[in-house]
Amino acid sequence: MLEIIDLVKKYDSGPLALDGVNLKIEAGDIIALIGPSGAGKSTLVRCINRLVEPTSGKIMLNGVDISSLNKKELREARKNIGMIFQEYALVERLSVMENVLSGRLASVSFWQSLRRNFPQKYISEALSLLDRVGLGDYVDTRADQLSGGQRQRVGIARALLQKPDLLLLDEPTASLDPKTARQIMRLVVDLVQEKNISAIINIHEVKLAELFTKRIVGLREGRIVYDEEAAKLDTDALTLIYGEEDWESERPAEDESE
C-alpha cells in the first residue's frame, strides 16, 4: 500500500535528516515510529505528504510515486492522506465544525470554502464524526475554547473527514496528560481499524506504542534500525534505538533514594 524506497532528506543546514529509509506498509497496518529526538521521525512523516520535500528516493502510495507529483497532482494525493499533529494545529479562531470541514477543502471550490458552503454529504459526515469523537455538543464552539484532549479530537475528526487511506500522526499525544493520551490513542486505533485505514504513528512514549500498535519501527540518526512486532520490543531493542540506558528499572528515582 505504502512503500518508501531509499528516502533521503538533507536540510540546507545540518546533516542528513533521513539517510536512506526503506519502509513497507500494508493496508490496515498500524505502525509506531519511535526513536530519539532528532532521529528524523517528524521529517519522515512529513516527507510522505511532502510538507517537507524529500531530497531523493521514492514514496509509492497505491502505486503512485508521491515524490514526483506536480502541485496539482500532489493536492489530489493529499486528499487520501490524513494528518494529526502534536499541537493539534487547529485554526483557533474558527469553530469546531469549520475546522472539521477544512478536511474537505480539496474537494470543494474556492467560493464554496469562502462561503463555508460545503455539500450536505460532508456536513452529515462531519456531524457524525463529531458525535463519534464525543464532541457532538461543541459543533459551533470556537476551537480556542476547547481543552487539549478535545482539540485533538477535532484534529482526528478533521483528518478522518478526508476518508484517507493513510493516516499520519506526528506525536499525537505529546501535549496531553497521560490519561487523555491513552484515550486519544485508543480512539485513533479504534477508528483506524473500523475504517481500515493504515496509520503511521510517530510517538515518544514507548509504553503507548507497545500498548496500541502491533508493529514498531525504530529510527535512529535517519536510519531504520529496528522493525519488529510490538511484542518483541525488549531492552536490547531499546538500546539499539535510543542508546545505552538502564531500561529495566521502572522508577530510577526510588532505587537511588532507598
Binding site: 493529499r78 477543502l105 470554502s113
Partner: peptide, 22 residues
C-alpha cells in the same frame, strides 16, 4: 502557527484556500 498552515496544506487545500481558511 506553522503547524496550522501545515495542517491546512496537508488536507490538499489550494493556495487561495490556505489564505482564507488558514
Amino acid at each position: 502557527s506553522d503547524e496550522t498552515l501545515e495542517a491546512i496544506r496537508a488536507t490538499g487545500a489550494s493556495w487561495p484556500q490556505l489564505i482564507i481558511y488558514g
